[in-house]
Design a protein around this nucleic acid. Structure first.
Length: 438
RNA sequence: GCCCCCAUCGUCUAGCGGCUAGGACGUUGGAUUCUCAUUCCAGAAACCGGGGUUCGAUUCCCCGUGGGGGUGCCA
């Protein structure tokens, strides 16, 4: 069998839609799976909307997701140019063929394609054979001389030797036009694979750029883990089966086959996306978690430069397992880097209902001041001994002290929290809190 | 209007003629002499309806219904 050549052919609109990203992903997966080529072709026929910055959004998005292309802008290839705006000579040549063979005629200044009026069969790897008849002749070159999408899309697929057209189901109805065109050029159409669309999580219709979670550039801006987004996207319309969901991309490439893609549209679920991100975050090697965290903290109000590297590192180490997304990191760790703690009154009120906060804090402070070790085990023993001596639950110390040193009732593991903050800070904060607490 | 595609828990899905219909997110309830935005248990939750075919249909066929898409000198 001939080598697989697939393409992602977006038009630069200024944003990178999640549906397009998933189409790119499935093409990429299929190319990787078959050892074929993944081609990026930019469809910018429509007037001069094709500004460089629009193209950059697309390129950055694909790179962020780790979807590298074998041919296309930036990497070249034997079938270029890969920007449709630079291919008009090719389109003219092909259009001549249509005219010469009587498949096209002029009307109202535009060039029309003469349809066969016969039912066309679209061989689709996902849906099977789909038969559809094109009723009316349609425009292939506008009166202003610009060729339309249907024409250039087919010409490029022929000229670039595309073997499989993997694209959104919104093109399924158009496919009969394309098959007519392929026939007119005397070329066997490629195999099609119309993948289901991504629907918005709430309400009706497909995801639009205004829906939350719709734009790839926003995931990057919100510091999502690209591999998590990519993994989640794989599962919208495809499944590795065997009750597996989170798996390395190499494994996905091995298992992925375009024939296994579902037929029905999938609704996007931000909650599950967030869950995936959390799982990937926790599984990150610490060095990478550290780097990503530093990038987030650098943009925050936290003044990291006042602290030594080892301290920052130990704070992050402590928090990695608790985080679900990096955007919440600054808010999660701010009290490690500032002595002006804002106390959550509501959380305190709740705590006071359950235990005698002041008393526990006093007891803890005295014991902690006298203790020698600040490792997790020593702190745990200290809490346990205190609890036993005073006949209360260890949690009373834990919750009270957590609140006094952090101002809130949620956070990382308590013993690690005390260890990382260190004796000085903990004692100072306890003193502070006791001095102002009712 | 016409054409095309689709249909399993709220959501993503497994299932490809005989299953207690499985998993995941979410949700609910517990657990941990450490909170939860962690972790672990447990629970609730689905085969759109009607006809066929068959000994037997979630699974195959038809018709409804519902959802999605297309129907541009947009892509």
């Amino acid at each position: 069998m001939e080598d697989v050549r697939v393409r992602f052919a977006p038009s630069p609109t200024g944003f990178f839609h999640i549906g397009g990203a998933r189409t790119a992903l499935f093409n990429w997966l299929y190319a990787k799976h078959t050892g074929g080529k993944f081609i990026l072709r930019i469809e910018n026929t429509d007037d001069e909307r094709d500004r460089q910055e629009f193209l950059d959004v697309l390129i950055r998005g694909l790179q962020w997701l780790g979807l590298d292309w074998d041919e296309g802008p930036g990497v070249g290839g034997d079938y270029g140019p890969y920007l449709q705006s630079q291919r008009s000579d090719i389109y003219d040549a092909y259009t001549e063929i249509l005219k010469r063979e009587g498949h096209a005629y002029e009307k109202d200044g535009a060039l029309y394609f003469r349809v066969s009026q016969k039912p066309q069969t679209i061989h689709d790897l996902i849906r099977g054979d789909v038969v559809r008849k094109e009723e009316k002749d349609f425009v292939i070159v506008r009166a202003n001389g610009k060729p339309v999408f249907h024409l250039v899309n087919v010409i490029d697929d022929i000229a670039m030797g595309i073997t499989h057209v993997i694209r959104g189901e919104d093109h399924l109805s158009n496919a009969s036009k394309h098959v007519e065109l392929f026939n007119a050029f005397g070329v066997a159409p490629p195999l099609f694979a119309h993948i289901p669309l991504i629907l918005k999580s709430h309400g009706s219709g497909k995801m639009s750029k205004r829906d939350t979670g719709a734009l790839i550039e926003n995931y990057a801006a919100d510091h999502f883990i690209p591999a998590a987004v990519r993994n989640y996207l794989c599962l919208l319309g495809w499944s590795p089966k065997e009750d597996r969901e989170i798996l390395p991309i190499g494994e996905i490439i091995r298992l992925f086959n375009i024939r296994d893609v579902n037929k029905n549209n999938a609704r996007f679920d931000e909650k599950k996306m967030a869950f995936f991100n959390g799982e990937y975050l926790k599984a990150l090697p610490f060095a990478e978690f550290f780097d990503r965290s530093m990038a987030v903290l650098a943009d925050s109000a936290i003044a990291l430069e006042k602290f030594d590297g080892a301290y920052v590192s130990s704070v992050l180490e402590l928090c990695q397992e608790k985080l679900r997304s990096l955007v919440e990191l600054p808010n999660f760790v701010d009290y490690f880097f500032s002595e002006s703690i804002s106390y959550d009154r509501e959380a305190l009120a709740k705590l006071q209902l359950k235990c005698a906060v002041r008393q526990r804090l006093g007891e803890f402070r005295d014991a902690f001041a006298a203790a020698s070790g600040v490792d997790d085990a020593s702190i745990e023993n200290l809490v346990r001994d205190l609890a036993n001596a005073n006949c209360v639950n260890g949690g009373e110390y834990i919750h009270s002290v957590r609140f006094a040193v952090s101002g809130r009732n949620v956070g990382p593991s308590f013993f690690g929290l005390v260890r990382v903050l260190g004796r000085e800070r903990v004692l100072a904060r306890l003193g502070n809190f006791l001095a102002q607490c009712p």
